[in-house]
Structures are given as structure tokens and as C-alpha cells.
Simulated scan of single mutants.
Amino acid sequence: MEEVSYRNATRDELDIAVSWAAAEGWNPGLDDADVFWETDPEGYVVAERDGEVIATGSIVSYGDFGFMGFFIVKQELRSQHIGTGFWQWRKEMLHKRLTPGAAIGMDGVFDMQPFYARGGFKFTHRNLRMEGVGRPSQPAGNLSELSMVPFDKVADLDKRCFGFDRERFLRKWIAPKHGLALGAFDGDHLQGYGVVRQCGRGYKIGPLFAETSETAESIFLALSDRAAGEPIFLDTPENNPAAMALARKYEMSEVFGCARMYAGPAPSLPWENIYGVTTFELG
């Protein structure tokens, strides 16, 4: 048997990672792989043995910030210490892709927190996946489809809430093939924006960024209307009480969750404006 080797993934191998994520119950979006690949084609890696992909991972670089995700070992090969070396290699490779001193973030499943902590990651809070049912509503009059909004306004708000520039990702993310992206305005000021996209099961809202709880609610209701009658999910930061209150108001319940952790200095983000994180895979 050959030794395990590590390398960059091909585009088809990113589809393997997405399919494994779906099998784990992570419910990726129908078009996530296309957007993820175009964001950073060098940001996906695999472990290989005897010509077979046995583990996947992402090491996406935003220049001044990195994000690790898609850490999956093929199910029948777990508990063979395959993941430990692969994870360490991924972290080292991502550090090399970032500016010196840049932090790395991740949303790790709760059971893996001790492992990630031993690798230098520190816990900040939990992001909880809340599930409900999309409901019909009459969208507020101050909402506009993001395709009609000057991109620089969206990019500015996104950078405030995400902490770093991710223009390449954002241009594709706010134009979902199977979904809707909306912004809320006060005059010409963009107060918030959100995206809903179709997934293997139902729809996910992410991100949901807003300056006030009222704005967040109006965007949420309009996106929920797009998914009326279908399961709907919101990955809600537990450290924003208003976000948790919004989910509870619309009878959403916790079905999954991840620990947000950082290696290096955690970015100072306005969590009071973050009602739904974008993705557990890319931050």
C-alpha cells in the first residue's frame, strides 16, 4: 500500500468534497462548488492513497485572512490517523498563502474542538444552524435585488461585516442561479443585504447582514418568501442575541452547529450586525 500524499484538488475533486459534505448532512447549496472554485481555485486540497482521494479540505485565501473547511476523511477510513497529518499540512500550506501574521478562521463541528485547539485555534462563539419553514410575505418597499445595486455599496457593507475584501467571491455569491439576493435601503444608503440559495434540502439564507434588527427582519421575510413552503436554514451567530431572537420569532429550531475558532488574532467584527454567516465552508 502506498503512503498517503497531499496535493491540490481538481475541479472534479471539489465536487467529491461537496458530495461528501452532503452525505454528512451539511446540506451544501446546489451551486456552491462553482462559486467556491472561482473564488480560489488553489484553495482546495485532497489526501490521496493508491490513486484514490481519501480526504478533502479547503485552504481558501483572502490575502489578509484565510479560512479552512471541507475537512472530511472518507467514512470507512476514519480512526486511522489519516486526518491528523493532512490537517497539519493544510494549515501550513494556508499560512504560506497568506500575508505574514494573517489569521485563519474555521467553523468546526463541536466534537472536533479539542483537536483544533491543540492545533492553535481558539474558540470565540457558536454559529447555530436554525431550521424553519419559508413563509409567504409581502416584501418591504425599500428592498432591491442586488443585481440593481452598485456593487461598491454591497462590497463596502460586506467588508465591514466579514472583515476582509472578498470581491471575487461576492460577485458570484450575490447572483445565485437558484435563489435571490436583496438589499435594504434608506435613501441611497445600503442598510443590509441577504442571499437565499437552494440547497440539496430546502434553502439557506446566508449571509444576512443588517444595521438594525428591523432591517434584518424585513430582508429575512422577503428571502423566506422566496422559499415559501420549503425548509429554510439560517446559520445564526449565538453571540448576537437579536439574531437568535429573530430565528425564534419565526419558529426556527437548532439542527446543527459549529464552533467559530481562529488561529491568530480574531478579527474585530460587528457581530451585532451579523444575523446569518455566509457559509461554514468559506466563512
Rank of each mutant, 00 (worst) to 15 (best):
Y193I: 06
E42T: 14
P100S: 12
R78F: 08
Y62K: 08
V35E: 04
T56P: 01
P28Y: 02
G206H: 03
A243M: 05
G134V: 03
M112I: 13
S19N: 11
S147R: 07
A266R: 11
L146A: 02
A242T: 05
E76P: 04
V277Y: 13
Q138F: 09
L282F: 14
S218N: 13
A117V: 03
T56W: 00
W37E: 05
D31E: 14
A184T: 02
G43A: 05
I205P: 03
R171I: 09
L146S: 01
S79Y: 06
V18M: 15
M68I: 10
L269P: 07
L180P: 11
I54H: 02
V195R: 02
G108W: 08
G101Q: 01
E238G: 12
A47T: 02
N8F: 15
G119P: 07
G200S: 11
L128V: 10
K91H: 13
Q88I: 13
E281K: 00
A47W: 05
V46G: 03
D107C: 11
R118Q: 13
R197E: 00
H125S: 10
V4H: 11
H95G: 01
G63I: 08
A17I: 00
F121C: 03
K122W: 14
L221C: 08
V45P: 05
R49F: 11
A216H: 07
A175C: 15
Y250A: 12
D107G: 12
K249T: 08
K91F: 14
G179I: 03
L98N: 06
A47Y: 05
F86G: 03
T56M: 00
A266W: 04
F164I: 14
E3Q: 12
E2T: 11
L223H: 07
H178L: 03
G202Y: 05
F280T: 08
C161E: 00
G179V: 04
M261E: 02
P241E: 08
Y203Q: 05
I232K: 04
E38Y: 14
L170P: 02
L234D: 01
D40Y: 02
S268W: 09
P265C: 10
W173V: 03
S268G: 15
G229D: 06
E76R: 04
E145M: 14
T56S: 03
G101L: 01
L30I: 10
